[in-house]
Design a protein around this nucleic acid. Sequence first.
DNA 1: AACACCGTATCATATTGTGGAACGTCGATG
DNA 2: CATCGACGTTCCACAATATGATACGGTGTT
Lengths: 274, 274
Amino acid sequence: MRHAPSNEESESGEERTKIQGSQTLLRGLDMLDKVIDGPVKLADLSAAMGLTRSTTHRLANALADRGFLTFLPREGYQLGPKLLQLGFLAQSQADIVRIARPRLEALAARSEDTVHLGRLDTDLALYLDKIPGRRRVDISSRIGDRHPLSSTGLGKALLLDTPEAEWPALFEASRARGAPAVDYAAWAERMRGYVAAGHAYDLEENEDLIRCVAAPVRDASGRIIAAISLSSAAQYMDDARMAALSGEVRATADQIGTDLGWVPGARPNRRPRR
Amino acid sequence: MRHAPSNEESESGEERTKIQGSQTLLRGLDMLDKVIDGPVKLADLSAAMGLTRSTTHRLANALADRGFLTFLPREGYQLGPKLLQLGFLAQSQADIVRIARPRLEALAARSEDTVHLGRLDTDLALYLDKIPGRRRVDISSRIGDRHPLSSTGLGKALLLDTPEAEWPALFEASRARGAPAVDYAAWAERMRGYVAAGHAYDLEENEDLIRCVAAPVRDASGRIIAAISLSSAAQYMDDARMAALSGEVRATADQIGTDLGWVPGARPNRRPRR
DNA sequence: AACACCGTATCATATTGTGGAACGTCGATG
DNA sequence: CATCGACGTTCCACAATATGATACGGTGTT
């Protein structure tokens, strides 16, 4: 085959692995990315791919034939129905607990502390998984437990996208469910900091002498569907360590999100599904 | 390249188009289908594809590299996170009204009658689109209208998957919303027939002298997310014609569903999302 | 230890994919 | 009404890319 004229490196600066011996497949797969925000005409598509119109057309047609692309006569190529089907199937195969487990174990191993995974359940945080740390610290939580949102790191992480207007109601609900009585104004002020930082702390508000760092997990829709937290005795968790750990906890949460189809940079999509 | 040893026709009886000149891409895309029900080991995958282990491995790796497959060390290959991302994006691009329009127009043109598209809105049928037929018949419906479920073909089609236990409540709600007072037992008996047939009729229950044939539209999850109906004056709609049209209406509804990622044969998935 | 299983790497071969160019087809423009 | 331009489609000679036989290196099982 003739090679592309001095197109050794892509002009659009993207650097994708070669995987040697699958050029056609990789080009086809990458083509789907070029179509993610609406219909694209063949000419634009070939320009974006750095390929000739012939090649682009052949690939696009193959993708369309299998339903990965839809061709709209006067608009261009668009994501096709096959992706809806496979996306749904992938969704049903994606069990958060199973997906998250290895990442959580790695985090627990590195930090030697206890890691939790949980999600929102009406107005409580439901604990889905727990990896005990190496240190002998009693963290009195069990899988299946429900804890108040306002007084746990995990719960606060779950709320990071919730509009502030809804905070008072949730705060009250938490108090009714056993959260300690603290001043709302002070709590909300701290929450604003957590929202800005993208993670949440828990500073002995719930169980005495336990501190934790928590971060939200997002799925393909960008919504927060779960959160993880790393807990330890306050003696092992001074402010400096919490700050140091927060990046790692966020990174782990983001990795899990990526496994679930979340795309870090993508336009935030906060609207609830349907 | 060496060709596959006498593997001219696939053993698994599937017949897929050639599209000449995209073998690698097509093989890769088809590979995703072999993985739809859980992790598959490399050996099984190559067997299912009718390819050598080498080739299978190369393709699977390319797919995994781009996130279309996930490799689980001791289980095999599985649908990957990229499909979740693209599936979600495809979903947000898939506007039912726009997708359905050409199909509805074709149906309206063929039958010369009025076609409606609608979906469930709490306990009413919300009309999303309307293509007037050629015949001059007053169908007093407008886009945005809400009509009772129990007394419209469209509404009944929307209920075809609803457990019978919930029928009485919905029937009562419809009556409260203006549906004519008919006998529940008789209505339920007719509904059972519609459920078995996969389509619904409306026989002058709502507007006098109007009859219609309706069918449900399913999405990738298998759930009924909308319905279409074909309405005409009773004089043009004798029982024979209704029977003849029901197949065509169902076919159109199914085509729209396919555009939305629905797969005809797939295991029915009735459980609500989340 | 020997074995079976599974994923990975290598490499000569020619099949497959490539891109240039020409063709159709539709609307818009002069 | 003719010409043009934009866009998708088809064709084809050429060689780069994809292929599959074979061999390798892990890990758990007998």
